[in-house]
Design a protein around this nucleic acid. Sequence first.
DNA 1: TGTTAGCACTCGTACGTCGAGAGTGCTAAA
DNA 2: TTTAGCACTCTCGACGTACGAGTGCTAACA
Lengths: 355, 355
Amino acid sequence: MTEIRDLSKLTPRDREILKDVIMTYILSAEPVSSRSVSKHGRLGLSAATIRNVMADLEEWGYLMQPHTSAGRVPTTAAYHLFIQSMMQARKVPARERRYIEENLRTGDADQIMGTASHLLSELSRQVGIVVTPAVGDTVLRAVDFVPVSGRRVLCVVVSSTGFVDNKILELEEEIPRDELGRISNYLTESFAGQTLRQIRERLLRMMAEERAQMDRMLALAIELARQGLDLPAGPGILVDGAPSLLSHPEMTDIQRVRRMFEAFADKARLVRLLNQCLQGNGVRVLIGDDSDLTSELDFSVVATPYGMGDQTLGTLGIIGPSRMEYERVIPLVHFLGEALSRALADTFSGGAERK
Amino acid sequence: MTEIRDLSKLTPRDREILKDVIMTYILSAEPVSSRSVSKHGRLGLSAATIRNVMADLEEWGYLMQPHTSAGRVPTTAAYHLFIQSMMQARKVPARERRYIEENLRTGDADQIMGTASHLLSELSRQVGIVVTPAVGDTVLRAVDFVPVSGRRVLCVVVSSTGFVDNKILELEEEIPRDELGRISNYLTESFAGQTLRQIRERLLRMMAEERAQMDRMLALAIELARQGLDLPAGPGILVDGAPSLLSHPEMTDIQRVRRMFEAFADKARLVRLLNQCLQGNGVRVLIGDDSDLTSELDFSVVATPYGMGDQTLGTLGIIGPSRMEYERVIPLVHFLGEALSRALADTFSGGAERK
DNA sequence: TGTTAGCACTCGTACGTCGAGAGTGCTAAA
DNA sequence: TTTAGCACTCTCGACGTACGAGTGCTAACA
């Protein structure tokens, strides 16, 4: 692949032909011949002329041939150019919009996240991914303790974005139900509106400063909070629809399929990948060399952040072979990002107003 | 495949040879030749003699040839016979036992279930499956309500087996925190020890009978309980490690791989399949024709129930190609069934003693 | 009568060849 | 600058062949 010529060097005709090749390839999954562009294309040029242009485009790094007597296939650079300045985003059909809105309306935050990843995969026919917020960054809405058995207590943590997490605590002594209730109230009132991270720091300060004059209940409350709010810190990730990729024609090689599944099993890596799309607040696309994972599998990622108000909570997107219907899929991801943000806000409105 | 000869017709030598073929095939995944049995086998017979016996075994339905000049492959009947009366269960290594016990020790019931399915898949190198209890059949330990925002309340349901479920309720009016606390207490005290199904019936009766003389709080409590305890009824299912099957040599055909993933995506069918193993309380094995799913994929299922005390909570097991190390895998499933039961009992002991 | 050696036979696989077809690159003419 | 024509290259499937693995059968042997 030689150096990529500045796109100013491309004449409108070059661009038109390149666009034709890309769009045809995206639909057919087969190398595109000069003849088919000549026949199908809107500009009435002969195959020979097209061939000349295609030879140039290959030289400039936008096309390549799998072998000498095959048609041409777009390169990563071509996809970039296509997305940046050639494609025309197709509006998400009203039917799909309605379908998405309806499905995102039900359930708690976790369920909504699951639905979102499923919708992504179903409608894009790629793999849908949702990165859920790291618990440490979420704002506390309420804490509650439920006695489970003897000295065991279930701690329920509700974030202002509607996420619920729970954890079983093992205490040193049995605590009566109503005292647990008082502690829940106290903690919720003192800490609601702060992130778990902030709370944890404040707890440490409290323990250090007031150690002397603490009454028993306060001490207990602090101890319970310390244990209960110490939830796993990392963001979660939902992956949906990996098997659906098996129906794509490029997925014939078992080894490739295997590498793909292995990559999808490495959640931490996926989170890192998706979070590369956090900058800015629109849809971002990573193709091929843009990341180690996409180049390894020859995949693309289309992702966008979502959140409540101005607070970014996580990322959502799709991943699949670079040959992907960007015109359809980019608006879809965009819409789902907004729909998810809206769904979270609707269901848990009035969440961030405290403090 | 002709009729299967009564196993009494098999001489000890026949059985020995059949066993050799099966065990060799399980390890090699390739049709077993008479020569390799003659060389490897403990009985010092020539290949020709082995051939005669193998021809008989084929006639009786225990072996088959993929094609004329290939070695022999065990049939479903052979696996059945092998498991029933020829194989010698290999004890789960102490290292693995320890590994299992340690990993199952942490977390709430949901986490433990997830760990169990993961351990199954990791240690068997097959797909691990755990069917979790249907919520309607679990015994209530505690209910609790946490205000979330305005008229929204989070209902937390804790079962005596340690499962936690939660659901957001939308109420008609805002209810103060302490009243919610009283309602939680009341409901927990009146209903703990009964299954959700029983509770639902009793609630209906209460609503019908006492409609006249109900005070406001009682009415509220009943309404909250009705909404909050109306959780999805069906059992859940966890599937872990499907991609690991891709490394098995029989998984070369993309179409087969696809059918496999599609089958695994059909949770309801998997639950039905696993629950075929509920009778009795030991490990059960389904091979080939024993069920539509196993015959369709040429897979086997090794599964066992688990529970607390005498109460069966669900099923756990593995699924994978019929060529599977039964000698190792059956004891593994057995042990994991017991370990999971123990883990649940340990973590939530004293759970079923009420009522 | 059971066991074994020998041998012909079958079948799948690997390999090389061949021809068809698709697509290109180049050249020369319009 | 565009196009028609043509030779060239490469893939793919069909076909034939050689080879090897493994069997089934038969006849000899213990």
